[in-house]
Design a protein around this nucleic acid. Structure first.
Lengths: 353, 353
DNA sequence: CTGAAAGCGCTAACAA
DNA sequence: TTGTTAGCGCTTTCAG
C-alpha cells in the first residue's frame, strides 16, 4: 500500500504539501505546477487515500447509516435506499446499510456499529408507513425517520402524503365521470388506510358527491383481499373502484375476470403504489398512484445533511401550556409529506351508461 | 465524545489496560475484577470505541463492499443483499452498499470509495444472472462475483444452478404424469435461457420422452411475453407448460383466463423465480422453482471471508497448453452453483385425459 | 509558499 | 499483571 508519505518522498515535497496537492486544497497556495506534478506522481504510484486515517484526523467519516426493517421484504425499500444512496453520493458520503428484519436486537447492534463508525447521521426507515418508537441511541446522532414517524414528532420525518394520494386516485375516477365509486380499503388501521380514506372523502366532497359508507369495503391489503372483496363490491352497484393498493387490484382483477366483468368497460379500477412488477403488467394496465419511494430516500438524507432549522418548531410553553410536559428540550418537527403522483394507464373508462 | 483515555483515567488504570478490558482481550491476563470494573465504568460513561481509530491502528476496517447494478430495480437483489449482510454480520463486518444502476462511472467511484475505506473485500453482484466484465479495480482487493461471472473465471463466482432448476421444474410436471410439456423460454439468450432449456431437455430424456422442438416457444421474459405466447402454446396441444419465469406465467394466466382455459384442470403450469409479490398470489397459486437469492448473498461473503483454496485451480501449463495464454498468474475458479428448490402450490394437476 | 510537528483515538510491542 | 510508548496515515496549525 502506497501512503501519502511515499508520494511526498517521490515528489520531493513535504508530506503536508503532498496532502494539499492531492486534495486540491484551495486554502493554501502552492504553485500549479507543483500541484500537478504531485498529483501525477500520486496517480502513477497508485496512491489512494486511507479514509480511516483521514476520517480520524478530520473527525468525520463521510458515511451515513441507513437502517431499514426490510429491504428484502419489499420492492419498495429498494427504491428508498436508492434515493438515499444517490443523495448521499452527491454529497460525497457513503451509506452503511443494515436491514434489521424487524429484529430489535439486530437494530441495537446495528446502531452501535454505525455509531462506532462515526456515521454523520442515520436514516431510520420502515418499509411500511407506520408509527414507530425509535431506539434511543438514535438520539446520539443526527437522524431522520423515513416512511415512518414517532408519536411525539421528536424526530424529523418524511412520509408519503396518503391523503393527497387518496384524493388523487379518487379524482381520477371522478374526472372520468364516475359518481358511484367504491373503495376497497385496508381493514387494518394504518396511516395509509386512514389517510387514503380521508382523501377519498375529500375528493367526493369537492365533487359534491355524498359519501356513502356502504361503498367502502374492508379487506386485507393484498391479492387475496381484493379477490375476496368482489362479491361485496358487485353488490354496491359501483361503476368504479379505488383499491387500497395494486396488490388488491390484482386480486380483484382475477375475481372480476372469473365473473366476466371487464375492466374498464364494466368497471373502472384505480390502484395505489405503482408497484414494480405488477401495475404496468396487468391486463389492462393499471392506472394508479405512485408511492414516492425514491424521493423519500432523497429527502431523508437531504434533511440529515442540511438540518434546515426552518422546518422545526421548538415546543414553547405558550403554544402548549403544560398540557403534556414531555421531554423538556426535545424539539417538535413537522413531518414532511411527499406527494404521490398519478400514473395513468388503461383501467379507467367513462361509466357504462 | 468520551475516549478510551477518559475511561482509563476514570478507572485509574492505564490506557492499555483499559483497551484490553474493554475489548475483552484474552491474550493478556488482567484480574477479572479490574476487567469488570473498567467495563462498568466505560459503560456508565457511555464510552463507544472509535472504529476509525481502531481500524487504522489494526489495519482492518471490518467492512466489506457490496456493489450491485440494481437493488432497486428488482425485488431479487434485496434478498441477495440481505443474505450478504447477515453473513457479514455474523463475522462482525458491516456492508458498504452501493447500487450503480448499471452506470460504470458510478461503479468506478464506488470502487474508489470502498477501497479508500479499506474494505476487506467486495461482493460484485448483478440482479440478472449474466456474464460481466468486472472493473479492474476489483483486482486490488479480495472479491467475488455473485449472480454473475466473468468469461475466464478469474474471479470466484457464485450463481444459481439454472440447469438443475430447469430440470426440477420439468420434473414436477413429469411427476404429475405429463408427457407433452411445452416450454415458454426467454427469447433472448442468457445463462437462464440456455441453462433452463438444458434442464428441460435432461428431464425429458431421463423420463424417456423425446424432445419436440415445436414445444419450445420463445417469448420475452415478462407478463407481456407470456400473454402473447398463448396462441402458439395452445397450438402445441401441450397438457402442461414450463414458463421461463413467474412473470411469464402471470401473463399467461391472464391470457388463458380470457380463453376459458383453466389452470390446472385444462393446463398445468410451472414457473421459475418464486417471485415475491407474484407467485404465491396468482389464482391458483403458482408452483415454481425458487431462485436462491439469499443463499447467493450468504455464500458470496462467505467465500470472501474464508478463501478456501480447494475451490480454485491454478491454470497450469499442462492442462491448457498455451492455447489461450491469458494473464499469466491469474487463477481460474470453479463457479459455485447453488441449487434452486421447488415450491409447490396449486398450478399442477394430472393430465386431463 | 512550504515544512515540521502535534495530534486524531486506539492497538500492540516492549518494558517493568 | 500493568504501564509506556511508538506508531497507524493523514490533516492542519504554526513557523520559517
Amino acid at each position: 500500500m502506497v501512503t501519502l508519505q511515499d508520494v511526498a518522498h517521490a515528489a520531493g515535497v513535504s508530506i503536508a504539501t503532498a496532502s494539499w496537492a492531492v486534495n486540491d486544497n484551495k486554502d493554501v497556495r502552492i504553485p500549479e505546477e507543483t500541484r500537478k506534478r504531485v498529483r501525477r506522481i500520486a496517480k502513477s504510484m497508485g496512491y489512494r487515500r486511507n479514509a480511516l486515517a483521514s476520517g480520524l484526523a478530520r473527525g468525520r467519516s463521510d458515511s451515513i447509516g441507513f437502517i431499514s426493517d426490510g429491504v428484502a421484504t419489499s420492492p419498495f425499500a429498494g427504491q428508498v435506499i436508492r434515493g438515499a444512496q444517490d443523495e448521499a453520493w452527491r454529497n460525497g458520503k457513503i451509506l452503511l446499510v443494515v436491514d434489521t428484519n424487524g429484529d430489535s436486537r439486530i437494530e441495537h447492534s446495528a446502531l452501535s456499529f454505525m455509531l462506532e463508525r462515526q456515521v454523520e447521521g442515520i436514516v431510520y426507515s420502515s418499509w411500511v408507513h407506520h408509527e414507530v418508537v425509535p431506539p434511543k441511541e438514535l438520539r446520539q446522532v443526527n437522524s431522520v425517520l423515513v416512511n415512518c414517524y414517532d408519536r411525539d414528532s421528536t424526530y424529523p420525518a418524511v412520509v408519503p402524503d396518503e391523503v393527497q394520494g387518496g384524493l388523487t386516485a379518487t379524482n381520477l375516477l371522478i374526472a372520468a365521470g364516475h359518481k358511484r365509486i367504491a373503495f376497497i380499503n385496508q381493514s387494518e388501521s394504518s396511516p395509509a388506510s386512514v389517510g387514503r380514506l380521508r382523501g377519498y372523502r375529500q375528493a367526493l366532497e369537492q365533487a359534491q358527491i355524498s359519501f356513502d359508507p356502504s361503498l367502502v369495503i374492508l379487506a386485507k391489503a393484498d391479492q387475496e383481499g381484493g379477490y375476496g372483496a368482489v362479491d361485496a363490491l358487485m353488490k354496491t352497484g359501483a361503476t368504479a373502484v379505488f383499491c387500497h393498493n395494486d396488490r388488491t387490484a390484482m386480486g380483484l382483477y382475477d375475481a372480476l375476470r372469473e365473473r366476466g366483468v371487464r375492466v374498464p368497460d364494466h368497471l373502472s379500477v384505480v390502484g395505489f403504489d405503482n408497484q414494480e412488477v405488477i401495475a404496468a403488467h396487468l391486463h389492462p394496465g393499471l392506472t394508479t398512484v405512485a408511492l414516492p419511494q425514491y424521493d423519500l430516500g432523497v429527502l431523508g438524507v437531504r434533511m440529515l445533511l442540511e438540518p434546515s432549522s426552518d422546518r422545526k418548531h421548538s415546543k414553547d410553553a405558550e403554544s402548549a401550556p403544560a398540557v403534556r410536559p414531555g421531554p423538556k428540550d426535545l424539539q417538535e418537527y413537522q413531518p414532511v409529506h411527499v406527494s404521490c403522483p398519478s400514473v395513468v394507464r388503461r383501467s379507467i373508462a367513462v361509466p357504462a351508461r
